[in-house]
């Protein structure tokens, strides 16, 4: 994966011919080049900065991260005829497809009063995570020339790519609010909970994208694999079905149900639904399905993903330019 590959000799000049390092010759003093360099305060050019300073470096690049994301967003649809209209049209078409299949053809309501708002919220929120991870996985490998030309903390790139997806999500959220109001939801103060919920999800996405950026930089195969993983995760997260409807089928496997409830994909989707949809809160209440755990899980996943992801990405900082 990201570990340097074993040196073997399958061609070219064998490595065994590598000579001894330069030896001293004459003139009394026994100073080597390494100590000469150290005495003048030079450091190895491929060394990575300490974690604390690295965090500081990334924070200092916040302007770069935001500008990079905005530039990417605005250039995303420049080659298409409708241009930026696609930013709104894409989520709308998604809703149209899901309405056609699940609302009209299959009519899978199963325990949900207002299925369309339930479905659209789930799809939009999950898409944010899905697209963030797919973008994060290619963020380093797609910008090799930039990485080689300029020096900046490489973690800026996965951050910027997730910000691009955040900007897309905010547009989707406008569409989402239009739809849930059209389905009779009333504006309420509780809807404001969507803001801290999205902040936690953003944090989670960034952490996971950082980890995937490192994996994708050294093992591009993961970009082929990721769509399948994401689709499996989507089906396991209750995005297009009502998770509690599985409860009676999983009575013998209680741990599996707990696992499904702790799954971060499901946690953020459910949190968005309980924040935005009063009818969905009633549905859960009716079957005595507790949702108190959601916020704790959401905080846990956000913090854990961010810390582990950032640490994991930073550990390979000096190797990203090598490709």
């Amino acid at each position: 994966m990201s570990h340097p590959e074993r040196l073997s000799t399958s061609g070219g000049e064998p490595v065994a011919t590598i000579a001894e390092p330069p030896r001293l010759n004459g003139s009394g003093s026994s100073e080597s080049l390494a100590t000469f360099a150290a005495r003048h305060g030079l450091t190895q050019s491929s060394a990575r900065p300490p974690l604390r300073q690295y965090v500081q470096d990334v924070w200092n690049r916040r302007n770069f991260i935001w500008s990079f994301a905005s530039a990417k967003t605005s250039s995303m649809y420049t080659s298409s005829r409708l241009g930026q209209v696609w930013q709104v049209l894409t989520p709308l078409l998604n809703v149209g497809v899901y309405y056609l299949i699940f609302g009209v053809l299959l009519n899978t309501k199963r325990g949900v009063t207002d299925f369309m708002p339930f479905l659209v919220t789930g799809v939009f929120i999950f898409t944010f995570t899905q697209r963030s991870l797919q973008a994060g996985a290619k963020s380093v490998s797609a910008n090799l020339s930039l990485i080689r030309a300029l020096h900046f903390p490489r973690a800026s790139l996965p951050f910027a790519y997730v910000i691009v997806e955040l900007q897309q999500l905010l547009i989707s959220m406008v569409v989402l609010f239009g739809i849930i109001f059209a389905f009779g939801e009333r504006p309420s103060l509780q809807m404001l909970l969507i803001v801290p919920m999205l902040a936690l999800q953003l944090c989670f996405n960034m952490g996971l994208s950082l980890a995937l950026a490192r994996v994708g930089a050294f093992t591009p195969d993961v970009q082929q694999l990721l769509p399948f993983i994401m689709r499996t995760w989507l089906y396991a997260s209750g995005v297009i079905f009502f998770l509690p409807s599985l409860a009676h089928r999983l009575e013998q496997h209680h741990w599996l149900l707990e696992l499904l409830k702790a799954n971060p994909g499901s946690v953020y989707v459910e949190l968005a639904r309980t924040s935005l949809l009063a009818s969905y809160r009633d549905d859960l209440h009716r079957i005595h399905w507790g949702d108190d755990h959601l916020w704790w899980y959401a905080i846990f996943w956000a913090v854990a993903a961010m810390i582990v992801g950032f640490w994991y990405f930073q550990r390979a900082e000096e190797r990203y330019g090598r490709g």
């Binding site: 390092p21 360099a37 450091t43 190895q44 050019s45 020339s145 030309a149 330019g321």
Partner: peptide, 23 residues
């Protein structure tokens, strides 16, 4: 290698500050 983009198989490169490579 001076820019720190290729790992030395042996030996080392020491620099002051971060080198920039224009290719």
């Amino acid at each position: 290698a001076i820019a720190g983009l290729l790992p030395p198989a042996r030996g080392a490169v020491y620099t002051a500050g971060q080198p920039s490579l224009l290719g």
